[in-house]
């Protein structure tokens, strides 16, 4: 019944205005970087003519130069070309696994959030058990079962990520279901199915898509991490985590072999995170 604190709102106003001006260019930059990366993943040949697999023992461990932007590795392969060609696998870890986890997460989460109490309780308990394990451990167990390999790495990351999304979806579903505007729709006389489709689902999925943008970065790190451990694709496939792993024994003599693929991972993850947060900011600015 309180009147709220209208007068204190005027104290907060300038800060809110300031934030909005600085953020869009950052979000746009992140979007452009991500676009370039996707382009590299789909059409690597427009960025480099060098063959990522061509070895040249005479060119072994050359430092970065104009000819070899990121230098060459032990077998004389061009690191820049390998980084560009590696984008395909690393991004597909991120996008495929996140998309799959998202779909499963939405199905489980919405079902649980809308189900009667006992069903919801069982699903919630199962999610709690699944969430008790570190994501990397879940992925490792899946690999232990299925064996190493590129596809299995994607499956492993997906399995590890599903409970996280499912839990978020379930909680959001319950929150939205209990929110005043859903009850207002009931009072208005709207049909139950229409309420779920027109009001509940869009309000659950909207923020989740934003979260998933950030999740792409997490999945990329997980995927390259499993490759780094030697559980994903095998040499000589160009893949960032694998390249890092190959390059770590020559750190003292040829740092570039390991540093540039790592930089690629970090830049990719930063751009998905920044883009995700930017979208989140816009979404919240609009919704709340």
């Amino acid at each position: 019944m309180s009147v709220g604190r209208p007068d204190l709102l005027e104290l907060a106003r300038p800060a809110a205005g300031r934030r909005r001006r600085t953020v869009p260019p950052v979000g746009a930059v992140a979007g452009v970087v991500l676009g370039v990366l996707v382009l590299a993943a789909v059409l690597p040949w427009i960025f480099t003519g060098a063959d990522p697999l061509a070895t040249a023992t005479s060119d072994s461990q050359l430092p970065p130069s104009l000819e070899h932007l990121f230098g060459t590795d032990k077998l004389g392969r061009d690191v820049f070309s390998r980084v560009v060609h590696g984008a395909g696998l690393s991004l597909s870890f991120g996008f495929t696994a996140t998309l799959a986890a998202l779909i499963l997460g939405i199905l489980i989460g919405v079902a649980s959030g809308l189900a009667p109490r006992p069903v919801d309780n069982v699903i919630m308990r199962a999610l709690e058990i699944a969430l008790a394990f570190p994501e990397l451990l879940v992925a490792l167990v899946v690999i232990a079962l299925l064996g190493p390999g590129t596809t299995n790495v994607i499956v492993a990351i997906t399995v590890a990520a599903v409970p996280v999304y499912a839990r978020v979806v379930r909680i959001t579903t319950i929150q939205v279901r209990q929110s005043a505007f859903i009850e207002a729709s009931v009072a208005l006389g709207q049909h139950r199915v229409a309420i779920v489709l027109k009001h509940l689902l869009p309000n659950v999925i909207g923020p989740l898509l934003v979260l998933a943008t950030i999740g792409i970065g997490t999945s990329i790190i997980a995927g390259s991490g499993l490759s780094f451990l030697g559980l994903g694709p095998v040499s000589p496939t160009p893949e960032w985590g694998l390249m890092l792993s190959d390059g770590r024994n020559s750190l003292g003599t040829a740092w570039w072999i390991a540093v540039f693929p790592g930089l690629a991972i970090t830049v990719t993850v930063i751009s998905t995170t920044v883009l995700g947060r930017y979208l989140q900011g816009r979404f919240e600015g609009r919704a709340r």
């Binding site: 005043a180 505007f181 207002a184 729709s185 009072a187 208005l188 027109k198 309000n203 909207g206 609009r286």
Partner: peptide, 22 residues
């Protein structure tokens, strides 16, 4: 009841939360 809900309508204290934010 849904068929007759049009007969009785409501206005709440916090109208903002009674609208779908989208």
């Amino acid at each position: 009841r849904r068929e007759r809900r049009h007969s009785i309508q409501a206005v709440y204290q916090d109208p903002l939360s009674s609208f779908d934010p989208r």
